[in-house]
Amino acid sequence: MKMIQAVMTNPGIINFNEVEVPEVKKHEIKIKVKNIGVCGSDIHVNHGKHPYTSYPVVQGHEISGKVTEVGAEVDHIQVGDKVTIQPQVVCGECYLCKNGMYHVCENLKVMGFQTTGMASEFFVVDANKATILPEGMTWEEGAMVEPLAVAIHAVQRTNTLDNKNILVIGGGPIGNLVAQTAKAMGAKKVVVSELSASRLDIAEKCGLKTINSNEESLTEGIKRHFGDEKADVIFECVGSSYTVAKSIEIARKGSTIVMVGVVSDLTEVNMGFVQDHELTLLGSAMYQSNDFDKAVELIKNKKIELNRLITNRVEFTNYLDAYSIIDNQKDKVMKVMIEMI
C-alpha cells in the first residue's frame, strides 16, 4: 500500500513523494491523518533556522487522525478511534526518563524535527504515543491538543493559580492558550499584552483582558488591570531578549516568571534584580501525557475557545502556502491548519 508524504528536502522546498505505508508491528497503530497544525518551530525549519533539524525532513507534529489498524498486542485502542499523537521519542534510559521527566529526555527526538513527522496520508506509531479523543471533538480541535498541552504544562509549572493575577506577554497561539488555560484553571484575573491589533481582538473574543503595548506601557497596563497588587505570575510567551528582560523589570517583588517562549539568542538577565526582588524564574518545555489528557478534558468541557485561533486553512498538496501565508501576513495569522486529502 502506498501513500503521499510531504518531504522538505531543503528550506522552503517540499516534494510530495509516493512511499510505502509502513507495516504495523504488534505494539503499533496506523492512523489516517486528518489535520496538521503549523507552529512556530515548523516555520524555523522552513527558513533553515532550526538549530536541531537537518534535511530532508518530514514535518508535522500537531495532528489528529483516525485509527485504521492496530497491532496484535494493542488492546486499549480500536479501529475507528479518533486520536492525537504525543510526538516525543525518548530513550527511557537516562536519569530524566527514569525519574518522571521524560519530556526533557537527554536524548530527546521530536517527530517532525529530529525524526519522521506525520505529514503524510497515513502514519504508523507506537500505540502508547496516542491520546484518544472524544467522538464529538472535531478533527481541527484534535490537532490543537498538542499546542494546548504546551500551555497546560506551562501553567502547571506554578503551584497554583487560585486567586492569582496573571500577565501573559505575547498573544500568539501559545500565549493565547496559556491565558485561556490560566483562566480555566482558577486564576483571579488574566491579562494578555500584545502589539498586534488582530491578536488583541482575538484575545478579547476569547474572553481575555488585554494590554495594547502600542498604546500604553506594560507598567501602566499592569496598574490599570491589577492595581498595586500587580501580577503574581508572568508568562513570557514571545521568546525575545527584550520581552525576557522586560518580564523581570516589571515583575512585582516575590512574583514568579515562567519562560514559555523559545529564546534563540543569548539574553542578559539582571540577576541582581532577581535576587533582590526574590523572583522565581521557571522554564517550561514541551509536555507529558497528563498534559494531553488535561487538554482533551478542557476542550471537551468547552473551557477553551479554539475555533477563533484557526485563522487559515490550506490543502495538504499546497503545504508551502501555509508558510507563505504566515510569512506574508505575520501578526494577522494565528493557527494555520493543513487539511489532508
Score class of each variant (00 low, 15 high):
Lys302Phe: 03
His47Thr: 09
Asn15Glu: 15
Met286Asn: 13
Glu135Asn: 14
Phe113Gln: 05
Arg313Ala: 01
Val263Phe: 09
Phe123Glu: 03
Met144Thr: 03
Asn46Gly: 04
Leu177Ala: 01
His27Glu: 15
Gln288Thr: 07
Arg313Ser: 02
Val110Tyr: 03
Phe122Glu: 10
Tyr52Cys: 03
Val124Arg: 03
Gly37Cys: 09
Phe226His: 02
Ile325Glu: 08
Leu298Lys: 00
Met259Ser: 08
Ile29Cys: 13
Pro147Asp: 11
Thr160Gly: 07
Ala6Met: 10
Ala130Ile: 08
Val333Ala: 00
Asn165Tyr: 09
Ala154Pro: 04
His225Arg: 15
Asn15Arg: 13
Gly186His: 08
Ser213Leu: 06
Gly136Thr: 06
Leu309Met: 11
Gly239Lys: 00
Glu268His: 11
Phe113Val: 07
Tyr242Phe: 13
Asn301Gln: 12
Ile310Phe: 02
Ser284Arg: 02
Arg224Tyr: 06
Met8Lys: 01
Phe316Thr: 07
Lys335Pro: 08
Lys332Trp: 03
Leu320Tyr: 04
Val125Gln: 01
Val58Ser: 00
Cys105Met: 09
Asp201His: 12
Glu215Ala: 14
Val314Gln: 00
Ile14Thr: 06
Arg157Cys: 11
Lys34Asp: 01
Gln288Gly: 06
Gln114Ser: 14
Lys26Ile: 09
Tyr102Leu: 00
Asn328Arg: 15
Thr138Met: 10
Lys205Asn: 12
Val333Ser: 00
Ile85Val: 15
Ser193His: 14
Leu161Cys: 02
Thr158Asp: 06
Gln78Arg: 03
Lys2Leu: 10
Leu208Met: 11
Val258Asn: 07
Asn312Lys: 01
Leu306His: 01
Gly171Trp: 00
Val19Phe: 09
Tyr323Arg: 05
Gly40Cys: 10
Val333Ile: 10
Gly92Tyr: 07
Thr181His: 06
Val19His: 10
Val67His: 10
Phe226Asp: 03
Lys164Gly: 06
Glu216Pro: 04
Ala119Met: 14
Tyr242Ile: 10
Lys34Ala: 11
Lys188Val: 00
Gly142Tyr: 02
Asn176Cys: 04
His47Glu: 14
Asn46Trp: 09
Glu18Tyr: 09
Lys302Glu: 14
Thr280Tyr: 02
Thr311Phe: 02
Lys230Tyr: 06
Val124Trp: 01
Glu18Trp: 09
Asn128Thr: 08
Pro11Asn: 08
Thr160Val: 13
Asn212Cys: 06
Lys188His: 05
Gly80Ser: 14
Leu148Asp: 07
Ala130Ser: 05
Cys39Thr: 05
Gly37His: 07
Val191Cys: 09
Glu278Lys: 12
Ser41Lys: 15
Lys332His: 11
Val168Leu: 01
His47Cys: 06
Lys303Ile: 01
Met111Ala: 10
Gly254Pro: 04
Ile31Ser: 09
Met8Cys: 15
Ser240Tyr: 08
Glu28His: 13
Val233Trp: 03
Pro22Leu: 05
Arg224Cys: 01
Lys25Met: 15
Ile338Gly: 03
Thr115Phe: 13
Ser324Glu: 15
Lys303Leu: 01
Asn290Phe: 05
Gly100Glu: 01
Ser64Gly: 12
Asp75Trp: 08
Leu167Lys: 06
Lys30Pro: 14
Gly261Asp: 04
Val314Asn: 00
Val67Pro: 05
Val33Leu: 08
Ile166Val: 11
Ala119Ile: 06
Lys34Met: 11
Ile29Gly: 11
Tyr319Lys: 08
Gly136Lys: 13
Val19Ile: 14
Lys302Met: 12
Gly207Trp: 04
Cys237Leu: 01
Val274Trp: 11
Leu167Val: 02
